[in-house]
Design a protein around this nucleic acid. Sequence first.
DNA 1: TTTCATCTGTGAAATATTTCACAGATAGGA
DNA 2: TCCTATCTGTGAAATATTTCACAGATGAAA
Lengths: 225, 225
Amino acid sequence: MKVSKEIMKESIPFPSVERLTKLFSLLQSVKKEGKEKISSAELGTLTGFHAHSIRKDISMTEALEGGKDGYVLEDLKNVISATFDFKKKKRVCVVGLDMFGAAMLSNPDAGSSEFEIAAGFDSNTNRMEIISTNVPLFHVYKIEEKVRELGIEYAILAVNPENAVKSAERLIAGGVKGILNFSPIIIAPRNGVQIRNIYLVEELRLLSATLRSMSRSAQQQCCDT
Amino acid sequence: MKVSKEIMKESIPFPSVERLTKLFSLLQSVKKEGKEKISSAELGTLTGFHAHSIRKDISMTEALEGGKDGYVLEDLKNVISATFDFKKKKRVCVVGLDMFGAAMLSNPDAGSSEFEIAAGFDSNTNRMEIISTNVPLFHVYKIEEKVRELGIEYAILAVNPENAVKSAERLIAGGVKGILNFSPIIIAPRNGVQIRNIYLVEELRLLSATLRSMSRSAQQQCCDT
DNA sequence: TTTCATCTGTGAAATATTTCACAGATAGGA
DNA sequence: TCCTATCTGTGAAATATTTCACAGATGAAA
């Protein structure tokens, strides 16, 4: 159970990883507005996180001296990017090309990010012929082969519930490292493959459940002065 | 800062709310397979949560005696449902009807759940005329009015980044209680309105960041014996 | 160059959450 | 009816995370 000091230093707690990832996305938009510096308090207002947490998160990445008016936006972006290797291009595929999947295929945001949508898969050949896209499309039987061949690391799973598990298995067999599962089935993590389950109805339920449970409804609602 | 004991009892920690919500969705599918009872260990395997956590979560809801072979599936569903009021019908609207939004409009899962998609909004009248749906569509100018009139409590926000904040303000003015924001902008929580930001690229980044940060990569990967 | 207001960086305290261990409950079989 | 194997329910211990408070750094202004 013991881990050496050096390795420990690398290990950033998951909640911090989450916040830093969000900050990174946020910084992209703020940058467009021409801002050059930004303080932890401002970041707090924009995200709803405590400024304290933000500072601590940032201090976990790399030495980065914040000047008088806060962090240099560009530096901060670079540090987060370096910590998680956000600059490296990564290939993604979309499995299941009904309306939702097709929308993912042509998602303009992905194109301007480090993620390149490199393939689409579906079990319905007729449907694939109708879709107009530059992304190469294949039958789901070819998932394992093409994922390996094209070096695809991540997958967006948007198939119906019956096929979700089988598709996930094919993706894992092909060697993907992470799956974003939008189908209404929870896929349990396995073999070190990261899986995030995002199911529309469940997200709505979570909203309503959170409102109901008074618990930490104050959760992310305040920020530093 | 002090809260009376009774109210405290109602307050379920957010991570537990999350897990219970997922369990509820899971139980719906398991039920279809004809199972009548299910143990915390089985639930653990299916979700990737620790069986211990699951038992503790369940014990936070209501008295529910688990028999020899685990929980009675139907009872468990009812208890979770009662805790968060999942039986009550709720109205939802979709703002922004490009491919993604349109896919949401006709999401078959929503239809079979407690959420009813009661309206769609877009700023492009031409686009709205093309969409074939039974859901009534309106111009975004009418958001506040229609949300109030139709008693819409939740919104799915799928507009482009430039319009996200304005749309959110209109929704809040109309009285929605929760927003699921799929646009690539973080909307900070306000006025007690719950907001969940789900941005495709960011979710992909989070997958890759989690893989990179050795931290808790073991996070949800094991479960009870 | 000194002062001052403003921010960050971070160990330590306060909380929250997860994990554990085991008492108690249950049902099936002898 | 009693025994046994199998589960749950839950206080308490172990961890993890958030929050705090304040020392130290910075740059602008005088």
